[in-house]
């Protein structure tokens, strides 16, 4: 009768950092606070972005690196022909190809969004990314804590970091152990 495998061999999940309970976690430090943004709706749009903006967020320019987003729908620019739309209310769209020349992919569960605010925001973010935030960039995509992310602000002292959902635990753990 062979020996049973050690527990750590049977369950590799114990090697990984435990995912936070996104419904309740908050980090509170002297100069900044971090919390996940819950209930955010997301669509990934590729193709003719002008046509897509006309449909989802008329007269709203796409948001680049460190730019301040305004309005109820945030069209966050990923690349030349791709953006992530986020909104507190559901975004009505038919998934797939749109005749106006863009494709829509539901992405609500594909990302985790972490919001950081406070007077220490700028100093903290300068530790998280090499990007020159004052230089400006039409794309909000950059490396944050070494991971691909979208970085922008919603007001002067509040930033949002959107990372692919599996990376959310890592970025949160980075903030916890900073």
């Amino acid at each position: 009768m062979p020996e049973p495998l050690p527990k750590t061999m049977a369950d590799r999940g114990t090697f990984w950092t435990q995912a936070p309970d996104w419904r309740s976690v908050v980090l509170q430090y002297d100069s900044w606070t971090a919390r996940p943004v819950l209930g955010l709706h997301r669509l990934l749009v590729s193709g003719n972005l002008d046509a897509a903006l006309g449909m989802f967020a008329p007269a709203v320019p796409s948001i680049g690196l460190w730019q301040v987003a305004a309005g109820s729908v945030h069209p966050i620019r990923v690349g030349r022909d791709r953006m992530l739309l986020t909104a507190a209310k559901p975004l009505v769209a038919t998934p797939g190809w749109n005749a106006s020349g863009f494709a829509v992919s539901p992405a609500t569960d594909a990302y985790v969004t972490i919001e950081i605010s406070g007077p220490g925001l700028r100093a903290l973010v300068s530790e998280m990314t090499f990007a020159d935030l004052e230089e400006g960039s039409p794309s909000a995509a950059t490396l944050v804590c070494g991971q691909q992310a979208l970085l922008h602000r919603v007001d002067e002292q509040t930033a949002r970091i959107h990372v692919e959902a599996p990376l959310g635990t890592y970025v949160w753990h980075w903030l916890e152990t900073r």
Binding site: S139, A141, T142, L143
Partner: peptide
């Protein structure tokens, strides 16, 4: 310098 994004760190 990315033609779209502008100057970025080489690690990107």
């Amino acid at each position: 310098s990315c033609p779209f994004c502008g100057p970025r760190d080489e690690t990107e």
